[in-house]
Write a protein that binds this DNA or RNA. Structure first.
Length: 801
RNA sequence: GCCGGUGUGGCGGAAUAGGCAGACGCACAGGACUUAAAAUCCUGCGAUCCAUAAAAUCGUACCGGUUCGACCCCGGUCACCGGCACCA
């Protein structure tokens, strides 16, 4: 019989749909398991072969968990707001909603063709007003708790398109689309205070089962650094210049100070700075530079001395000059630093260029050659902390500064607040109005969702405002508090908003009263396993952990963290080993693979392609190999006999394979799970016959990976019900060892022989059998045995002289 | 520059509480079936030595160390991939 994958796959997909086979009820006697994959952005290109890799992986986990008796929630939805859709809409004059609806329909049919066990009754779409009602609601709570505020913030602005651009749209300093000049334009934007959660976002990683590199990248991104804030007085003024430093132990080595070009000190003392023209010119120069240019010239230090202004080192009393330079950032610390050239590379470089003194205050390096930045040293030239180790000196210095009230211990984070405004149409409207009298006011929750109005043109306005700013009939309104004149916020939310809480909506997707009911939130609790790309391990994960913690604080969710476990998959490259792209012509279309080889083959192949966490190149030959495997599985049907149980000679292999597949699926090692099933299949065909129970077990083990073919064979063989409803097989450790085991024998660490012993033989008996072996005898002849090592059941090594 | 990751046959990759390196698959070669081809099945497949086989020797990026024993642990070097860019 022929393996007609196309017919089989369509048949079973229809059966699963009709029977709601994978529906997850919100109450159950079974233990719950929540498996989550990142919902896709439904782009116009349709599904990419990269998508099925993580989806298949967690589909396998979900299907297996169901067979193991869990009530499994495995949902899917659409992260559908976003720039490409908006740009497509602008270009083709089609409403973004229409574009989105079409794209979702296409994506959905493609996903269905792959046989995923999603609970489609829980599908969510971030652009659906019923969904974004709650995105807006969460924003309002943040606003009410003072965690949303307005701030001047620079955006990338294309001078040709007259549009604000996202960072990824700026390529080499010019607009990605038109090549026009991109400048930084300051705009008043909504910000979210994620920095208030910085410490908790670090601390709470502790109890989570995230792969290590995800944890480290989160920690690095938040970037905690411990140090001190110190006030340097300004000579002749009753004023201070405050700096942040992680190295208060080096303060005696501070020979000058540097402030950022935007530092307010400059304006404050502009009349006393004798070279104010040069200073302002430098500032202007720095402001003109884009981030791109600033990083391009990262190496070469520039700056201007503030003539007429000096600072006083509060510890040594020394009078030191003050410079401005763009290597000091206004956005970190206090925007000013104490420069210790002997022990900081950037200060060293700057001091060399401007001929400033370099004083060594920590021994251990060679300051003729470069800065000594290590804390493995002892203080010298440092008055009362001389002789102390760096780390001790830090504590001592902070103590003294706190006594003298000139400084204190301080923790800083690299993490910045989240810029939450976008000057775009295709996003959630921000549900606030600005009242002439009351300022920013939240719209009443009863008015949510605040829906996007229909507009003629999705193009942003000439001055970079959102298209909504062209619609007075929409933005003109009254203040909910005083009834006076007010205007709506015309900025919309970033794409990150909808994806920050979607896992909660899946728990209770049709609720009109709340983002999800308390019962549902409590029942489903944390996501048990969340898999997604490495590109989302910083921002998306951080943003959604932040929102979750906020929702916990206001009593909406019962858990402190959203995701108990996080794993990441590697990318799939083109067969030439480079990233798939249209221009290289190495893009593989999943629809064609499904048509030519079947969904089960695609699933099996994507799991067999290599280590799940690493990138792997596409290989059509290897894909054919997987098809061949499934062909052979299908033909296995021909050699199934009516015998029950496992046959004697395969019993050990059966139990070993069950264990291997069970553990490998839990451990993300799908490639070796499939290899084990291939080996078992080889054992069956070598033998020429399979018992009914061996076949049954084999089908269940393969089912999560290749669900259609296994359902079909299950039915053909007349097993009860559907394979999707059976129990996962168990293995018995005691049946996993052969009666006779082969022990490799090494002489002086080199493999020389193999000896068969009974599995029950004790160590002495094994050693005796080893020494009886003819080959071994030859090696021992005329030598003295120095040492004998026997690792039971594993290996034996004899050291001779 | 910093952080993270990875280096194993012709290729994708197995094997780490330190214990038979190369499972499984691909490609390739030979054979069977066939009028023939495809498909399928069988056999071989790290390198050197060799008529062949056995045996032996060498082999997990490179150099060195620890150990009875190292792909695995330690020290150093190199290459590639990803992320971040002056974070005081």
């Amino acid at each position: 019989m022929r393996y007609d994958y196309s017919k089989i796959e369509k048949k079973w997909q229809a059966v699963w749909d009709e029977n709601n086979t994978f529906h997850a009820p919100n109450t159950s006697d079974k233990p719950k398991f929540y498996a989550l994959v990142e919902f896709p952005y439904p782009s116009g290109q349709g599904l990419h072969v990269g998508h099925p890799r993580p989806y298949t992986a967690l589909d396998i986990v979900s299907r297996k968990k169901r067979l193991e008796g869990y009530n499994v929630l495995f949902p899917m939805g659409w992260d559908a707001f976003g720039l490409p859709t908006e740009n497509y809409a602008i270009k083709n004059g089609i409403h973004p909603k229409k574009v989105t609806t079409d794209n979702i329909a296409h994506f959905k049919s493609q996903l269905k063709a792959l046989g995923y066990s999603f609970d489609w009754s829980r599908e969510v779409d971030t652009t659906d007003p019923k969904y974004y009602k709650w995105t807006q609601w969460i924003f309002l709570q943040l606003f009410k708790k003072g965690l949303a505020y307005k701030k001047e913030f620079p955006i990338n602005f294309c001078t040709v398109c007259k549009v604000g651009l996202a960072n990824e749209e700026v390529v080499n300093g010019v607009c990605e689309r038109c090549g026009g000049e991109v400048v930084r334009k300051v705009k008043n934007q909504w910000m979210l205070k994620i920095t208030e959660y910085a410490q908790r976002l670090i601390d709470d990683l502790d109890g989570l089962d995230y792969i290590e590199r995800v944890k480290t990248s989160q920690i690095n991104w938040i970037g905690r650094s411990d140090g001190a804030q110190v006030d340097f007085s300004i000579e002749g003024k009753d004023d201070v210049l405050t700096v942040f430093t992680t190295r208060p132990d080096t303060i005696f080595g501070c020979t000058y100070m540097v402030i950022s070009p935007e530092h307010p000190l400059i304006d404050k003392y502009s009349s006393e700075i004798t070279n104010i023209d040069a200073v302002l010119a430098y500032r202007e120069e720095a402001a003109k530079k884009s981030d791109f240019e600033r990083s391009e010239i990262a190496k070469d230090k520039t700056g201007v001395k503030l003539e007429g202004i000096n600072a006083v080192n509060p510890i040594s009393g020394e009078v030191i000059p003050v410079f401005i330079s763009d290597y000091v950032l206004m956005t970190y610390g206090t925007g000013a630093i104490m420069a210790v050239p002997a022990h900081d590379e950037r200060d060293y470089e700057f001091a060399k260029k401007f001929g400033l003194p370099i004083i060594e205050v920590i021994s251990g390096g060679n300051i003729e050659e470069g800065a000594f930045t290590s804390k493995d040293g002892v203080c010298i030239n440092s008055g009362f902390i001389n002789g102390l180790k760096s780390t001790e000196a830090i504590d001592k210095m902070i103590e003294v500064m706190e006594e003298k009230k000139i400084g204190h211990r301080q923790v800083n984070y690299k993490l910045r607040d989240w810029v939450f405004s976008r000057q775009r149409y295709w996003g959630e409207p921000i549900p606030l109005v600005h009242c002439d009298k009351c300022g920013w006011v939240a719209i009443p929750e009863s008015e949510l969702p605040l829906e996007l109005p229909e507009v003629e043109n999705y193009q942003p306005t000439d001055n970079g405002e959102s298209p909504l700013a062209n619609m007075p009939e929409w933005y003109e309104t009254t203040c909910p508090e005083c009834g006076g004149h007010a205007v709506r916020e015309t900025d919309t939310m970033p794409q990150w908003a909808g994806s920050s809480w979607y896992y909660l909506r899946y728990m209770d997707p049709h609720n009109d009263e709340a983002l999800a009911s308390r019962e549902a939130l409590e029942y489903w609790d944390q996501v048990d396993w969340y898999n997604g790309g490495m590109e989302h391990t910083t921002l998306h994960l951080l943003y959604s952990r932040f929102w979750h913690k906020f929702l916990y604080d206001i009593g909406v969710v019962p858990t402190k963290e959203p995701y108990a476990k996080r794993t990441s998959h590697g990318m799939i490259l083109g067969s030439d080993g480079t990233k798939m792209s249209k221009s290289r012509g190495n893009v593989i279309n999943p629809d064609e693979v499904v048509a030519n080889f079947g969904a089960d083959t695609l699933r099996t192949y994507e799991m067999f392609i290599g280590d799940f966490e690493k990138t792997a190149p596409w290989s059509e030959n290897s894909l054919r190999g997987c098809k061949r495997f499934l062909d052979r599985v299908f033909n296995l049907y021909e050699i199934v006999n009516d015998a029950g149980g496992y046959s004697k000679d395969l019993e050990v292999t059966m139990h070993q394979t069950i264990k291997k597949v069970t553990q490998d699926i839990d451990g993300l090692k799908f490639n070796t799970a499939i290899a084990a099933l291939m080996s078992l299949l080889n054992a069956f065909t070598d033998k020429g016959s399979v018992t009914k129970d061996e076949f049954r077990t084999f089908l269940i083990l393969l089912n999560p990976i290749a669900p259609h073919i296994t359902e079909e064979l299950w039915e053909m063989k007349g097993f009860d019900g559907m394979i999707s409803g059976v129990q996962w097989p168990k293995y018995d450790e005691s049946k996993m060892v052969e009666a006779v085991i082969e022990i490799p024998v090494q002489i002086n660490g080199k493999l020389r022989a193999k000896v068969n012993v009974s599995k029950d033989a004790d160590n002495a008996a094994v050693m005796e059998a080893v020494k009886e072996d003819e080959t071994v005898k030859g090696y021992l002849n005329g030598k003295t045995i120095v040492k004998e090592i026997y690792v039971p059941g594993k290996i034996c090594n004899i050291v001779v002289k």
